[in-house]
Design a protein around this nucleic acid. Structure first.
Length: 203
DNA sequence: GACCGGATTGGC
DNA sequence: CCAATCCGGTCC
C-alpha cells in the first residue's frame, strides 16, 4: 500500500479553492490500531480574519488558533460542545489563518476499526460512521493529540483517492453558523451531490 | 474569577 | 425537542 500525501503547494491557496478540491480526495489516518480512511464528500471553507464565522475572525491569535497562522497543510482540531472534535485542514501561506472543515467522509479503509471506535448499537448502519464532523473524527480516531499535525507527513494526510466517486460538486451556504450575520449567506460549503454521507440540509 | 455559548450528536 | 459537557473568549 503506497501512501502519497498531497504536496504543501496544494494547501498554500485560499480556503475556498482548497475546500472545493478536497471533495473526492481520501483522508487517511495511520494509528496504532490500524489504518482508517475515507473519501471527503463535504467541506466548508472558513476565510479567516474577515470571516465572522471563523475562529480567527479579526485576526484573533490564541493557543487554539495558532496553527492556522502557520503555512497551510496542518490539522486544526478543536473541541465542540465539550464532547466532540472537529477536524479542519489549514490553508494559505504563513500568517493567513484560513481553514477547511471536513464535514463528512465516505469510509474506505478500516471500516471495522471505525465501527469499534463509534460503538454503534446496530453495526450495519455504515452511514452513521462518518456523516458528520464529530462522527468522522470519532470514527477516524482524530483527537486533540493530532492538533497541528503536518498533513505532508504520513500519520494523518490527504491523498488522491483510488476509488472513483461519481457525481458533481454542489455548493451551498455553510451550516449552523447563525452567529455569523451576513456571512451565513456566503456559499462556502461544498459537497458531492447525491452522496448518502452528506449532511441533510434544508436548502 | 465568573459567565456564556458553541463549525454537534444521540436519546427521549 | 433538548441535555450532555468543557474549553475559549469576554468582561468584570
Amino acid at each position: 500500500m503506497v501512501f502519497k500525501p498531497l504536496s504543501r503547494k496544494f494547501y498554500l491557496r485560499d480556503s475556498i479553492q482548497v475546500a472545493r478540491e478536497l471533495i473526492g480526495k481520501e483522508l487517511v489516518h495511520s494509528s496504532s490500531v490500524g489504518i482508517t480512511s475515507g473519501v471527503i464528500v463535504e467541506t466548508e471553507a472558513y476565510m479567516g480574519v474577515t470571516d465572522p464565522a471563523s475562529h480567527a475572525f479579526g485576526g484573533l491569535r490564541s493557543k487554539r488558533t495558532a496553527v492556522m497562522y502557520l503555512p497551510g497543510g496542518r490539522a486544526y482540531i478543536y473541541l465542540i460542545y465539550g464532547m466532540y472534535n472537529c477536524m479542519n485542514v489549514t490553508a494559505q501561506k504563513e500568517g493567513v489563518p484560513e481553514c477547511v472543515l471536513i464535514r463528512a467522509l465516505q469510509p474506505v479503509r478500516g471500516i471495522e476499526i471505525m465501527q469499534a471506535r463509534r460503538g454503534l448499537k446496530n453495526p450495519e448502519s455504515v452511514i452513521n460512521l462518518t456523516n458528520g464532523p464529530g462522527k468522522l473524527c470519532q470514527a477516524m480516531g482524530i483527537g486533540a493529540d493530532l492538533y497541528g499535525a503536518d498533513l505532508c507527513e504520513k500519520r494523518l494526510f490527504v491523498q488522491e483517492a483510488e476509488i472513483f466517486t461519481d457525481g458533481e460538486v454542489g455548493v451551498s451556504r455553510r451550516l449552523n453558523i447563525g452567529y455569523a450575520g451576513s456571512a451565513q449567506d456566503f456559499e462556502w460549503r461544498f459537497y458531492l451531490k447525491g452522496n448518502p454521507f452528506v449532511t441533510k440540509a434544508s436548502f
